[in-house]
């Protein structure tokens, strides 16, 4: 399910393909909106032409294309096609692939999370928390937002800034991600404002889980 955030950047059904500048602005706006509304799935589409196949989901590829450039470093987990991605990053983004500890963006699949040492991720500093890394999970699994109104094992419940406390309970179906990951995330994000942010990409959808979002596993009393 895709929920469109109300933004002025989205033109109502364009009659023709948008210009590159317009598309770039729309995509960037969607990424910003995703961070403003944690847990909300937003569509990240390419309308100016087909994407070059690089082994990432469309949302993940568009996200990286928008946010990685010569001043921003990216790392890819082992399960992703490293040679093709390195060439793509070099040619299309004019950047270089680096190790996880040096990266501003770390792209992985959910299977990689068990091997990923989150303590290596940059958390920024108290003076510059914006230097904290961003973990991009190219998620392959069932629809994240397809959850029942009742608490279901494996689902996570989200609270925090950008989530209406009076609105319906915000849940995500993240059964493919092990509970240990969320506990490690909570440890890393313990010294607010330092921490790292998460984007989850699934097909053409994008969900943000910024460091401010508290995550509670259904059936687990602890809030992380």
């Amino acid at each position: 399910m895709t929920t469109q955030a109300p933004t002025s950047a989205q033109a109502p059904t364009p009659a023709q393909a948008p210009s590159a500048a317009e598309q770039s602005a729309r995509q960037f706006r969607q990424i910003l909106d995703a961070q403003s509304y944690p847990g909300r799935a937003l569509s990240l589409m390419q309308e100016t032409g087909p994407l070059d196949p690089v082994g990432l989901s469309p949302a993940c590829q568009i996200l990286v294309e928008n946010l990685v450039n010569r001043d921003v470093q990216v790392a890819f987990a082992a399960s992703l096609p490293s040679a093709e991605l390195a060439r793509w990053v070099r040619l299309t983004l004019n950047s270089e692939v680096v190790a996880v500890a040096e990266a501003d963006f770390i792209v992985c699949r959910q299977a990689d999370l068990a091997h990923l040492d989150l303590t290596q991720l940059g958390l920024g500093t108290m003076a510059s928390p914006e230097l904290g890394a961003t973990l991009v999970i190219d998620y392959q699994g069932p629809d994240l937002t397809a959850v029942s109104a009742e608490a279901t094992a494996g689902c996570v419940r989200l609270t925090g800034p950008g989530i209406n406390p009076q609105g319906p309970v915000k849940r995500l179906n993240l059964t493919e991600i092990d509970a240990a990951f969320w506990h490690q995330r909570a440890d890393c994000n313990g010294s607010f404002p330092m921490g790292f942010d998460i984007f989850i990409c699934r097909d053409s959808e994008l969900i943000a889980l910024p460091r401010t979002t508290r995550i509670q596993l259904e059936g687990d009393a602890a809030c992380m």
Binding site: A21, S24, A25, F28, E65, N66, L67, V68, N69, R70, D71, V72, L93, N94
Partner: peptide
Amino acid sequence: AFRTTLSRFG
């Protein structure tokens, strides 16, 4: 403001 959203290619 728009400029800040552009990728810094080089």
